[in-house]
Amino acid sequence: MGTRLRFIVPVMAAACILCLARGGTHGKTGMSGSWLKNVPLYAGTRTNPYAQDQDAVAAGAKLFQRHCSSCHGKDANGTGRVPPVHSITVKNASPGALFWLLRNGLLRRGMPSWSRLPDEQRWQIVTYLQSIQDR
């Protein structure tokens, strides 16, 4: 029994994970912007302390490449099922709403929470995201 248990557990674990790995990262909900309705009023009205700051745009670009590009693409145009960041939703979202999204993520849809980054770095990413919308 002990020998069987030693092998059954890792084999079951690997099979379980392979099946679940089919589950997506970032469903299409990210593209439709339905997450915006979950943004609390106090969060959505926050202002970006680095708005129009070119150093923040550059820093945000660096952080985006480092933390976000593996899913959203180096050019922010999305990859596979992961939505682009160049979008009407992001363009029309307030800076506070984008900051809220980075802090909370969309865990059910596969976007992680970036609360591990300091507030300053998340605002730098928001500054970058807003700067690329008109390109």
Partner: peptide
């Protein structure tokens, strides 16, 4: 450091 620098 809480802020990222603009340079790589």
């Amino acid at each position: 450091a809480l802020k990222a620098s603009p340079r790589p």
